[in-house]
Design a protein around this nucleic acid. Structure first.
Lengths: 245, 245
DNA sequence: TAGTGGTCTAGACCACCCT
DNA sequence: GGGTGGTCTAGACCACTAC
């Protein structure tokens, strides 16, 4: 049995409002109750309501108009846009309307090369846990994801690592580490030999490459990943509120 | 003379703290004063300080540790990552350490094709203002940006449009429109003929393509853009806080 | 145990939009 | 004018971390 703390009110309100939007209790393009009304209905202060609405506005889920009201953004169907969601490839595939499957290609301990050592702040040759996975959408290979984790972080034996976990859960389970933030470089490339084979792409076609480094709250790099993204099959979509800064 | 309103305290505090971080008044990796101290120093409430710090934490600029303190993230050098910043190519190039220049390739009124009509909610054949620009970094062509704006939005004559403005400013100036949020699809492609020529790339190389639609607060599409990004020259980098949701 | 950030409240006033 | 979101304050209590 897991000990659970009372969920913060903000989180509860957040879930509730998102559920209502998803269930179209608040219609797409329709207006939400005023902040005051929501606060009264849910028995919380207006400030609490406002932090939740501010979060949803940043994601573009709702549109706020001073002097008028708050509206559901009908252009945002799936919400795969924010934070953890972007690297949860299973969810990303599902929200694109496909059936996701994960295939573990390999999981092994191997020495770090120079570049990996630099990125992960370890010495070249130090052991790394290397995980290569292939995510498919309706059976068609869509994303080839390669991740490396410094070996010293591993708290369990490699064969106990579940390659089907999302990277955040895997880190929590096997390394007792929490991700604080991620740094992503987006680039493109023409296919590499293994990408051609695993993603089943014609030679010479282009691919999206997402190069991600995950840091914990002590600002230490804990995972480095390269994901090869078949963008003819899946769409990488970002939503950004403009006024946010 | 432009009428100006008093800048909100939150914005002032935001600028002040970012300036201090940039100037290394707060050292990279170093600790900021506590929320209470900052509130006292600047003569504002703790809540005000907290909304600013929350914003900076979402961008990954600072790391917050409960029971400990708030720290400057030394891994974040340039802040081109958020909101408007991402589409301000001039700033993006500058923050990558290059000297940016803009060249206007063309600026004309032309009819909308089917796809553009669909995206911009107009009829095919309706007039569009089409702007093609080339952004260079240290003289080397880096980004080819094509934008189209529904003609009915234009409040000035086309030859009065300044092709060197950032897209948000251009909309404000020429269309009296404000951007509320943007929707971006990121994909890759092998070079098109005009990209080869303008971006000076070898045939068969890959490009990043950013397909952006800008909406106003009434949720009407007001601009659609395609930007071809020479990612061997410039890096498209995202920072995301993890706990944000 | 002291100090930090995290959560939450209650209430005030302002700016804006609609009618 | 009446209602909406935008800004800001003062203060309370909790949870976590370092010492």
């Amino acid at each position: 049995m897991q000990i659970t703390r009372p969920t913060p009110i903000v989180e509860q309100v957040d879930s509730l409002l998102r559920d209502r939007i998803r269930a179209e209790y608040y219609l797409p393009g329709g207006r939400l109750p005023s902040e005051t009304e929501l606060a009264e209905e849910l028995g919380v202060s207006r400030a609490t309501i406002r932090t939740v609405l501010a979060r949803m506005a940043v994601e573009g889920l709702i549109l706020r108009k001073q002097g008028d009201g708050t509206y559901v953004n009908q252009h945002i169907r799936a919400i795969n846009t924010h934070s953890g969601g972007m690297w949860d490839f299973t969810r990303l595939i599902a929200s694109s309307g496909y059936q996701p499957t994960i295939r573990e290609i390999s999981l092994s301990i191997r020495p770090a090369d120079d570049q990996e050592a630099e990125i992960l702040s370890v010495e070249a040759g130090d052991p790394l846990l290397s995980i290569v996975r292939l995510f498919s959408a309706d059976g068609r290979p869509a994303i080839l994801a390669k991740n490396v984790i410094p070996g010293y972080l591993l708290k369990v034996s490699p064969d106990q690592v579940d390659g089907r976990l999302q990277i955040g859960d895997l880190l929590a389970r096997c390394c007792h580490q929490k991700i604080a933030y991620t740094l992503t470089d987006i680039s493109s490339m023409t296919t590499t030999p293994d990408a051609i084979e695993l993603l089943n792409l014609p030679a010479g076609s282009s691919l999206l490459v997402l190069q991600v480094t995950f840091f914990n709250r002590n600002n230490h790099p804990i995972v480095h990943g390269r994901s090869y993204f078949n963008d003819s099959l899946l769409q990488l979509r970002l939503v950004q509120a403009w006024g946010a800064h």
